[in-house]
Design a protein around this nucleic acid. Sequence first.
DNA 1: TGACAAATGCAACACTCTTGCATATATTAA
DNA 2: TTAATATATGCAAGAGTGTTGCATTTGTCA
Lengths: 144, 144
Amino acid sequence: MVVQVKHDCKIELHKVALKATPARLATLKVLEAASKPLDVATIKSKLKKDGINADPATIFRMMNSFSDKGLVREINLQESKLRYEYSAKEDHHHLLCESCGSIEDISDCNIETWEKELREKKGFMIKHHSLEFFGLCKNCQKLI
Amino acid sequence: MVVQVKHDCKIELHKVALKATPARLATLKVLEAASKPLDVATIKSKLKKDGINADPATIFRMMNSFSDKGLVREINLQESKLRYEYSAKEDHHHLLCESCGSIEDISDCNIETWEKELREKKGFMIKHHSLEFFGLCKNCQKLI
DNA sequence: TGACAAATGCAACACTCTTGCATATATTAA
DNA sequence: TTAATATATGCAAGAGTGTTGCATTTGTCA
Ligand SMILES: [Mn+2]
Ligand SMILES: [Mn+2]
Ligand SMILES: [Zn+2]
Ligand SMILES: [Zn+2]
């Protein structure tokens, strides 16, 4: 039995007119495998384990072009840096534990109600939004 | 008729064991008068108009101590910098127009429903949260 | 295989924010 | 009112994230 590759990253890249370089293919694989949004430093160290030594500037540039082309989502968890998540995953929000740093997904976000209301009340056209919760995860509550 | 000063900032500062320096008093007045959260550069230029030349390091230090003491709230609108809002104003969220940069308040946030649900489902103890909407304000929609 | 546009590495830089240290000032007690 | 002291400030240096210019390398496609 072979592990199924969910996405053919080379084709994905060509679809959006980006060259399929080793660094890009490896980065997309890293993001696809990640269970939480990754920052540039983490991506760099994961690439290194795959034998790819990418310069931070290159990773920042990759993240920008991937975001522009819709391959990844920029995640801002109010840290001093951005994280990135593979776009093929369904859009969602996050729970961030301020003690252990664990990051959990929140799905079934019915923010659509908000959007409709704001549209009608304020005439504001919402393009995107951010809803993040900060606090203590189940584990960390025990330790206090 | 005299304009009412809503808060006696000198007393507020002494309450939280901070010295009432000219820079601090002026900064609190600036934040009290502001209709949207201000960043450090904006605070600096507003202070300058009041004849106070404060070093950025001083303003950053003020914002940190004011946050710690609960005099101001740190507002993260996913820009590359933080903004600050006078705490005496009711807690609320924001609408940020990506075209003109206008910032509007959203009140009557019934996020409490969310919090309760997450607490029961995930056992996560929420300390605070962030809900921000990004898009186009009424005006900017016309200009497209 | 070769031409060409695009990607990369590296260094320099921008920006926000922090910190060490010498000096200045607000507060308090005399 | 003054003196002592803890605290606040200015300035300069530096940390961290992210960007950019430029020379070189590499992927793509003819
Ligand atoms: Mn996620
Ligand atoms: Mn506000
Ligand atoms: Zn935790
Ligand atoms: Zn606008």
